[in-house]
């Protein structure tokens, strides 16, 4: 464990808890893409298949349970909660899951480190996580209004992966055998996807104006 990875995990944890708290407190999911939340639940499910088979550390197991629990809770709130579901904008949140899931699945079947079920699922979860934010970014551009909690959520989500890249650089230099190019590429693609959002987020923060994404 290094400071970059810990900071990344904490940033990731805060981002999902901020979102869960927002939905639970104001009983609204306005501006939140259910599609993205469902994709994240799928990311955690396919990535943490080793939850009960390989024990790495208490921290690792606890964090996996928190991420799984929070992502499924968020999906449950938006789908099932009698008040929250009313604020879900299903006409705007129309990104097709399979446009994202299928290419990631095909890519994982083609490009992986080992052709085993767990390894292909793990690789699939890396590719999926890189693009899972797309429905949320599309929704933000369509609705054009970004309440600052949603803006913070997306920002923290991007920041966590950027911190992970620093973690991979650190591990690359401190653990000689540690080279995992698939992780690198998926992580860099993911962070680049956030780059333009970061740009507009900082612009709005610097000029102290409401965050607006160009149409």
């Amino acid at each position: 464990m290094n400071i970059f990875r810990l900071a990344g995990d904490m940033t990731h944890l805060v981002s999902v808890l901020v979102l869960l708290l927002k939905i639970h407190t104001i009983k609204s999911c306005a501006g939140i893409s259910l599609k993205t939340q469902e994709l994240y639940a799928l990311v955690f499910t396919t990535r943490y298949l080793d939850l009960f088979t390989d024990y790495i550390s208490l921290y690792n197991t606890v964090m996996k349970l928190i991420f799984l629990g929070s992502s499924f809770s968020i999906v449950w709130y938006i789908r099932r909660h009698k008040i929250v579901r009313r604020s879900y904008d299903k006409d705007q949140d129309t990104f097709r899951h399979y446009f994202i899931v299928l290419p990631c699945l095909v890519l994982a079947l083609l490009i992986h480190h080992k052709f085993t079920f767990k390894e292909v699922m793990w690789t699939f979860s890396l590719y999926l996580e890189a693009v899972a934010i797309l429905p949320q970014l599309v929704l933000l551009q369509r609705t054009r209004n970004i309440d600052n909690l949603t803006g913070q959520y997306v920002f923290l989500l991007g920041a966590y992966r950027a911190l992970y890249i620093l973690n991979w650089i650190y591990r690359h230099y401190t653990e000689p055998h540690y080279v995992h190019w698939i992780t690198w590429i998926a992580g860099i693609v993911q962070t680049l996807l956030y780059a333009d959002f970061f740009y507009y987020y900082f612009q709005s923060w610097k000029n102290n104006v409401k965050l607006q994404l160009p149409a």
Binding site: R5, D9, H12, D50, D54, I56, N60, M63, K64, F67, H113, W122, Y164, N167, W168, R171, H177, Y178, V179, H180, T183
Partner: peptide
Amino acid sequence: KGQPQSHDEL
């Protein structure tokens, strides 16, 4: 080492 690379990460 037990864990293959980056499988010990979240």
